[in-house]
């Protein structure tokens, strides 16, 4: 094991969720927030939380502004959940350019609200985390900053459930993906949802599709 890993992946805390992969997987690398506070990656950011993680750099003018803009809208839709059980993290892939000061003005200029941290740290730690959370499994792309994945990684550490959503998806989709990694609701609640969903489907399909006989007549076939 690398000496560095020994320092950052210290012994597992007993209070972590049973399903979690823990700091052995996520590392407990010390990162710095845009408020210039040191945080341990697993203990302070991941443990027991639902986290939305994406990778940016402030000098990225191609895709990052739109990505961050979408996440700002998603944060609004999530409302007071952000900071309570859902946490958002944007991690820089160019720590040499993005110090806490730069990240703070980036966060402020986009209107990111509390519950969303912008993080920097050592290049080694950030690359390790990025390869664990959001790699293409494609060396050419994984080392090209312009092609860094534009996906948001969703992690529910309590259940060790993962999913992802493109940052260019709609804010509604970005919020919907949170529900995919939440605990399964009680049966009765889901049954009630089924009736609501069925009413929606009936409204759409029973109007949208013409009766078969109408269709057959339109094509000159016997009805």
């Amino acid at each position: 094991m690398n000496r560095r890993d020994l320092l950052t992946c210290h012994v597992t805390d007993k209070s972590r969720p049973a399903a979690s992969m823990g700091p052995e997987f996520y590392t407990n690398a010390v990162l710095r927030t845009h408020e210039n506070k040191p945080v341990k990656f697993y203990d302070d950011l991941i443990r027991g939380k639902i986290s939305l993680i994406n990778f940016i750099y402030t000098g990225c003018t191609k895709s990052c502004p739109r990505s961050t803009g979408n996440l700002v809208k998603a944060q609004k839709l999530l409302g007071d959940r952000v900071g309570r059980d859902v946490f958002m993290y944007s991690i820089t892939i160019k720590p040499e350019e993005d110090d806490p000061e730069v990240l703070r003005s980036y966060a402020r200029s986009h209107g990111a609200r509390p519950g969303w941290l912008f993080l920097t740290g050592s290049d080694y730690d950030l690359t390790t985390i990025r390869f664990k959370l959001a790699r293409w499994d494609h060396p050419k792309l994984d080392f090209d900053p312009d092609q860094h994945t534009g996906m948001v990684r969703y992690i529910n550490d309590s259940l060790n459930l993962w999913t992802m959503c493109p940052t260019y998806a709609t804010p509604r989709q970005l919020v919907e993906c949170v529900s995919w990694i939440e605990p399964t609701k009680p049966f009765a609640a889901r049954l009630r949802e089924n009736y609501v969903k069925q009413a929606e489907i009936d409204r759409e399909t029973r109007q949208a599709e013409p009766p078969r006989s109408v269709f057959r007549r339109a094509h000159g076939w016997p009805a």
Binding site: K62, S63, R66, S67, L141, Q147, H148, T149, G150, M151, P166, T167, Y168, A169, T170, Q173, F215, H219
Partner: peptide, 26 residues
């Protein structure tokens, strides 16, 4: 295509609630 680190078709992201084309039956 792969653009901005995301898979896209015709420059758009999949949305189960949006049809990108409607074809006429028959």
């Amino acid at each position: 295509n792969l653009e901005n680190g995301q898979f896209k078709v015709n420059g758009l992201i999949f949305d189960a609630n949006r049809a990108d084309a409607t074809v006429k039956q028959g």
